[in-house]
Design a protein around this nucleic acid. Structure first.
Length: 367
DNA sequence: TGGCATT
């Protein structure tokens, strides 16, 4: 291991880092003349804030040319950030000065001038672990400052909400450009920082929601090729490992197949419909019918566990007496394992008395 | 592995 930090001690803090201003807006003058003087990016918006509310809040400072709350393309959920473009630069500046740092519900919003959109500024966020526990926010910033312009950074604390939180040794650094993030990985990953004992791990951060998308991606890749018209693997092409951007296209096509293709009335879809596939990213949802009234969750774990990764089980119960209503649901991560469990357990005689009916969950079955 | 950062 190389102790690189000794080489970095001579580095001075760059202009973008003055005032320790990581949460300060990157206002006019920072980032070059090409930056828009009217277009703002708004981060850390409350989850339930709608575009209209955003427009109403920002509209107080002048006429707005456009306002957009960014939402997940598949789920429609707010991604917690958006853009406001004013007609006049003075109004945009007023909004930054007044609204940046405003507390909205439990969030402190960040309002800053948007950089011109380009591929170069995307995916420039790093996740860092192995940070010495005595490092503070400024130590982290000084360490990463040498590789480029930091847009924001955060050292995570044990108790994010409280003042007394201790550093967890992990954090995030977002650079202006991806190439800067790459340089930081190259320069710091695997090296022991000054005053530390363990090597740093520096890598690109996951995008939020990536866990969900990974589950979907895994299910997508595991789908058997059934027919040229129904298989998204034939029409959408293979999914590369490059992240969510590559996944959205094929997924949208897959949703289209299942929802609109005339072939969806076939029995193939009764096995692999969208209900069974998604279920909050917990894997393939299996419907289990003819369970006894005294059925507990443990029975479902025992029955399905031997076939592979079970992520969740649910026995559906009557409200007043909590007796099982005769059915339940099991989520399994892998398609092949779910199919194997269904094939084996469908028709299984439970205690030699009840014959179980097991299938992928259909849209009719409410969990 | 955040408080969902480029529409």
């Amino acid at each position: 291991m190389i102790n690189v930090i000794d080489n970095m001690e001579a580095q001075t803090v760059q202009p973008a880092m003055q005032n320790g201003g990581l949460m300060k807006p990157n206002v006019v003058g920072v980032g070059g003349d090409e930056d828009s003087k009217t277009n703002l990016i708004v981060n850390y918006l409350p989850q339930n804030m709608a575009q209209d509310e955003m427009k109403s809040l920002f509209g107080k400072f002048g006429e707005i040319e456009s306002c957009k709350l960014v939402r997940d393309k598949l789920t429609g959920q707010s991604l917690g950030y958006g853009f406001v473009n004013y007609l006049k630069p003075a109004d945009a500046l007023k909004a930054v000065k007044t609204l940046n740092g405003l507390r909205l519900q439990c969030k402190t919003i960040k309002v800053s001038f948007a950089r011109p959109s380009s591929q170069a500024i995307k995916d420039a966020n790093l996740y860092i672990s192995g940070i010495p526990k005595h490092y503070g926010q400024l130590d982290l910033d000084n360490l990463f400052n040498a590789f480029g312009r930091i847009i924001c950074s955060r050292l995570l604390l044990d108790h994010e909400c409280g003042e007394s939180g201790r550093p967890r040794g992990v954090g995030f650094v977002r650079y202006d450009r991806r190439c800067e993030a790459e340089k930081a990985i190259e320069g710091l990953n695997g090296n022991i920082p000054h005053g530390g004992k363990d090597p740093l791990i520096v890598k690109f951060a996951n995008n939020p929601g990536q866990h969900y998308q990974k589950c979907l991606q895994q299910m997508y890749q595991q789908m058997p090729i059934i027919s040229p018209t129904l298989s998204p693997r034939r029409v959408g092409g293979p999914v590369s490992a490059g992240g969510s951007q590559n996944f959205i296209g094929p997924m949208r096509h897959m949703a289209h197949c299942f929802r609109f293709n005339p072939m969806t009335s076939s029995d193939v879809i009764s096995h692999m419909n969208l209900q069974a596939m998604t279920n909050n990213g917990q894997g393939w949802c299996i419907f289990v019918y003819n369970l006894p009234a005294d059925c507990e969750d443990g029975l479902l774990w025992q029955l399905f566990g031997p076939y592979g990764a079970v992520t969740n089980v649910k026995v559906v119960r009557d409200q007043p007496n909590q007796r099982c209503k005769g059915y339940g649901f099991v989520n399994m991560l892998n398609y092949d394992e779910a199919l194997s469990a269904i094939n084996t357990l469908n028709g299984y005689q439970l205690n030699g008395k009840r014959t179980l009916q097991v299938s992928f969950k259909s849209s009719k079955q409410k969990s």
